[in-house]
């Protein structure tokens, strides 16, 4: 086994996903099969190989720091599930 059900539960917590028991069961089997498959990368010696995080070699992209209009409070809040005045409303953070 590459991954146990307890580990899958832990990853679900990290990913902020409230998964059901059947979902956790299925994912344990599927993730195990996929992780077993990706093990094949270990057959390659990659010592000294520089990792690629970006396909095109690129330095930092700078632009002038100029003031621009933003979309405004109403447009920013238009899709809010809940709002209060000019704020996003959320459940209580500290119990």
């Amino acid at each position: 086994m590459k991954i146990t059900r307890a580990e899958v539960e832990h990853v679900a917590k990290l990913a902020r996903l409230d998964l059901s028991d059947p979902e956790l069961d299925t994912l344990t089997v599927q993730m195990d099969s996929i992780l077993t498959y990706v093990e094949k990368l270990n057959a390659l010696d990659t010592d000294g190989i520089v990792p690629t995080s970006h396909a095109v070699p690129m330095e930092n992209a700078f632009r002038p720091d100029e003031r621009k209009d933003s979309i405004g409070v109403e447009a920013a809040l238009a899709n809010a599930p809940q709002r209060a005045e000019s704020f996003f409303r959320v459940p209580k953070v500290i119990e």
Partner: peptide, 17 residues
Amino acid sequence: GVRFGHRTEDARGLAQM
């Protein structure tokens, strides 16, 4: 579920939301 998109109707506290 804070700024846009689906928000559950069934949550106690922010983490559960």
